[in-house]
Design a protein around this nucleic acid. Structure first.
Length: 559
RNA sequence: GUGUCCGUAGCGCAAUUGGAUAGAGUGACAGCCUCCGACGCUGUAGGUUCCGGGUUCGAUUCCCGGCGGGCACACCA
């Protein structure tokens, strides 16, 4: 229940409820109260000193069985909620909703397109792709949880000169068995070699362009090679997506939009937006403080912008989205500002519904990555090492455990996902094995361990439970308050496109539960208390599972 | 150079959108398994929130100016 609204409605009849509710904050210390009303803004309208207002409001507030106390301190009114009431409401809600606890129907079935991961064909999945993939996937799950209809789109990078380079390299130095055996990494080795050789012999670049032209002209051999490379890539990334629990509804990539570019270019021309500049066709954006947006190169070829324009129009026509998110690194801030502005100038009123969800970049400790130079850390290697580490820890601490391999996978993969989602998305990340392989402290492993501990308690304590308690101790109350906070956290995470809110929430809840666990005996408590504490334990487990689930992280029963 | 984002404890980060005494983690040091899972818990030390102005009852948060860094800036994506 919404205590802010409840309090605001009763503060004073002549003060607008909405304003009071928005002013209500949380006191820095629960000893002071559960909600606080700062009276400084009211001082202006009421023409009285804040401290005096606080005293009057506290004195006149009608306390009841829900809000049991209102006291004035330094210009704040602190309200205290009845703990047993709060606990009963919260636990009952969690047990009624279970794996749906925290969800809502606020999305009203509205469609939200989410463009994420968007891998390039023929390039192995490396840690640079991790953020967009897990961020996008978490946003997908969040939207689903809150009643939207998400459409996950993997906008494949399956068009461009790089495929000419690849074919050139394959025909010069590659062979079928080698690629079939070595997969994407072998293919990428050819790509790296191409760039090395092209440094010495620039004519290779022309050869590559010629091969790309052959693909466009539907040359049988070139197209067959292109499809083979594409299939290899999809197989390879498919394995990764499965491990990460990531899914897509559409794989329409750049090549899909080639025949949809013409109409968009025509429309730009008809609307008088296209001008010639240095031989290229551009939309002038100087009035908006941006460099021109190039639509057609001087040789007539389309560009990234052109394809994205066509894709945006297609998505609007196909899905009639309420919003369309682009989960792409902040490197491309200007690109999206230009893209959205051009659509706006075209008169698309839905341009305002396009959102660039920008996130920070990943680099290595010794500098940035480079696929061309082969200087990359492959995601599959990272996952393998994390799973290995998890397996080693289990072997050491819980050797009798069954299904070691499967549990190690859940823990190891969780560590990879969690590491990418724990901080604000705008932060840059310097990748290091030391960090991802550390399973202590604020990590998914910590949360999973807390779940395993809760599971163990529940197994020994039996299924009976009670949502009511006569007296609630501070440690129990901290857990209750945190549990009650989950739906609001999920809402905020979606509103700000910040899955890290959910990740941090899970750690906070686990910390509060562990504090409670150490200070309060559950199984040896007096019967009524014992039943209540078992309920608290189960509610915590349900909520932690829901939180990690939204991030794509599983929770083993034991570990 | 222009635009944009960022700067918080030794380190990597939080801070409920402007609220009361800036918080956890990690690393360091000191403790806790003959009590429900020690992948855990408790305690100590660690801060001029980059600097200088301004707005405000109140600024880590908003505005202006510096300093430092990331990114982008015409035919790559």
């Amino acid at each position: 229940m919404d205590f802010k609204q409840y309090i605001a409605a009763r503060v004073r009849a002549d003060l607008p409820q909405e304003e009071i509710a928005s002013l209500l904050a949380l006191p820095p210390d629960t000893a002071m109260g559960d909600f606080a009303l700062p009276c400084f803004k009211l001082a202006k309208t009421l023409r009285k000193a804040p401290a005096l207002i606080a005293q009057e409001l506290a004195a006149s507030y009608p306390t009841d069985e829900i809000v049991v106390e209102a006291s004035a301190v330094n210009g704040y009114v602190n309200f205290r909620i009845d703990r047993a009431f709060w606990a009963e409401r919260t636990l009952a809600c969690i047990f009624a909703e279970r794996e749906r606890y925290g969800s809502s129907d606020e999305g009203q079935g509205r469609t939200v397109c989410i463009d994420y991961s968007s891998v390039n064909i023929a390039k192995p999945f490396h840690i640079g792709h991790l953020s967009t993939t897990v961020l996008g996937s978490a946003l997908y799950k969040l939207h689903q949880f809150l009643g939207y209809r998400p459409v996950g789109i993997n906008h494949l990078g399956d068009y461009g000169t790089q495929f000419g380079k690849l074919i050139s390299a394959y025909k010069r130095w590659g062979n079928r068995e080698e690629i079939e055996k070595g997969g994407l990494r072998a293919l990428n080795a050819l790509y790296v070699r191409f760039h090395e050789e092209a440094e010495k012999d620039p004519s290779l670049e022309d050869e590559a362009r010629a091969f790309f032209k052959k693909i466009e002209d539907r040359d049988e051999e070139s197209v067959a090679l292109f499809h083979w490379f594409k299939d290899l890539t999809l197989q390879d990334v498919g394995r990764i997506y499965e491990m990460l629990d990531v899914h897509f509804d559409s794989w329409a990539g750049e090549s899909f939009y080639i025949d949809k570019i013409g109409p968009v270019v025509d429309e730009l021309r008809e609307k008088g937006l296209l001008v010639e500049s240095e031989g290229a066709q551009v939309v002038d954006l100087e009035a908006y403080g941006m460099p021109p947006c190039i639509i057609l190169r001087s040789d007539g070829a389309s560009l990234y912008h052109t394809r994205d324009l066509a894709a945006a129009v297609y998505r609007k026509e196909t899905y009639d989205f309420y919003k369309c998110l682009y989960v792409v690194a902040y490197q491309q801030n200007l690109h999206f500002r230009q893209l959205f502005k051009v659509l706006e100038l075209m008169g698309k009123d839905w341009a305002k519904d396009l959102i660039h969800v920008a996130y920070g970049m990943v680099s290595l400790e010794d500098g940035s990555m480079s696929t061309r130079k082969g200087k990359v850390v492959y995601l599959e290697d990272v996952i393998d090492k994390c799973v290995e580490k998890a397996l080693a820890v289990i072997a050491e601490k819980n050797p009798a455990l069954e299904n070691k391999q499967e549990i190690a996978k859940t823990v190891g993969v969780g560590a990879v996902i969690f590491g990418a989602l724990y901080n604000n998305k705008i932060k840059d990340i310097t990748f290091s094995y030391d960090k991802v392989l550390n399973f202590e402290g604020e990590t998914s492993c910590y949360v999973q361990y807390t779940c395993a501990r809760a599971n163990s308690v529940l197994q020994k304590g039996g299924r009976a439970r009670a949502t009511k308690a006569e007296a609630i101790c501070p440690q129990e109350f901290e857990v209750i308050k945190q549990l009650a906070e989950f739906p609001a956290t999920v809402h905020d995470a979606l509103e700000k496109y910040e899955p890290c809110f959910v990740a941090r929430y899970a750690v906070d809840l686990a910390q509060k539960y562990n504090k409670f666990y150490f200070d309060c005996s559950i199984l040896n408590a007096e019967e009524k208390t014992r039943q209540f504490r078992l309920a608290l334990t189960e509610a915590t487990l349900i909520t932690l599972k829901n939180a990690l689930g939204l991030l794509g992280i599983g929770v083993p029963e034991k570990m």
